[in-house]
Design a protein around this nucleic acid. Sequence first.
DNA 1: GGCCAGGTGTAAA
DNA 2: TTTACACATGGC
Length: 216
Amino acid sequence: MQIDDSFELYTQLESLNLLKNKPPFWWPNYGTFEVLLGAILTQNTRWEKVELSLQNLRDNDLLSLEALATVDSDILMSLIQPSGLYKSKAKYLGQLCNAIIDQYGDFEQFSYEVDRGWLLEQKGVGPETADSILCYGCKRDVMVVDAYTARLLDAFGYAFESYDGLQSWCESGLIHHFETDELANVYANFHGMIVEYVKAYSKGKRVDILRLTDQS
DNA sequence: GGCCAGGTGTAAA
DNA sequence: TTTACACATGGC
């Protein structure tokens, strides 16, 4: 069996109830400033390590735009050390927080006004991080794709040349099946389901798609 | 012990 | 314009 479009994949994933024990819209603290931190900290790093760093920041009252914009960089580095790549991440986080304050004032305004182009201009923010911030932090109708997404679709015989190509395939199959104001939540859950599926049903780098194809 | 994780920036070729 | 490597920690 083949997956013809992303809507078919989406409905198959939904039937597996993969998000039942997850936070709403998958990413912890969806729609808050904390998502922005997680998006940077999780780069090439396991989420459990990000949680350690976030807890360190919380214990030091640093989970705010203003606090992170001014905190001493040595302190920041030591608190996010569990997530690895901590020197770069500390620098990028500080710069990003300062840029947001300069450009938008606060996180709420940022979340309404920021666009993908502005995020991509910031050091340390590539396509996946930008889209994670837009989708899970700013509640925008943007689909995050990543190595898990590519791996799952590879198992169905799909290959994409670029991040944008993969993203377009995911979004275009869904866009006509939902109301415009539903898309942000649909994309958020879709990406979350993909990650959870691949985590649950992979052996090494091979994804077992039988769990999906067996459904129908 | 080597490969990998919810990537990105930079410098060679 | 593509490719290779560094960034850093810890799980398996």
